[in-house]
Amino acid sequence: MRKIILSMAMVFMVAMPVSVQAASSLTYVDVNGMVCDFCARAIEKVFGQQEAVSSVDVNLDDKFIAIEFSEDQTLSDEKITELVTHAGYDVRQIRRDVSDADDSETKSDE
């Protein structure tokens, strides 16, 4: 019995971080017009003000932003598009990370 409890506890401990990781997700947004650091900073500021966003990483070379959401939170494609547009840029495509299976739709506005 003790062995069984110990085994269950180990399984639970190993599984725990996996389930936490699955709760947070990465979303990639391809952005048109993002050509300089001021552009990147604008995007970073706008998304950084969102409670659902835990971090934003801007890639100027490939013109996309990687948004990491707080645990169990996300932004809809419409909201992401609105934020990018309000910052002065255009969304080309939104790509949801595989860990966020429920929101894995890809959106294009072109």
Binding site: V31, G33, V35, C39, K63, G88, Y89, R92
Partner: peptide, 12 residues
Amino acid sequence: NLLKRWNKPESQ
């Protein structure tokens, strides 16, 4: 006033 902006994949 920003009258018009053209956002392209590689330029603005």
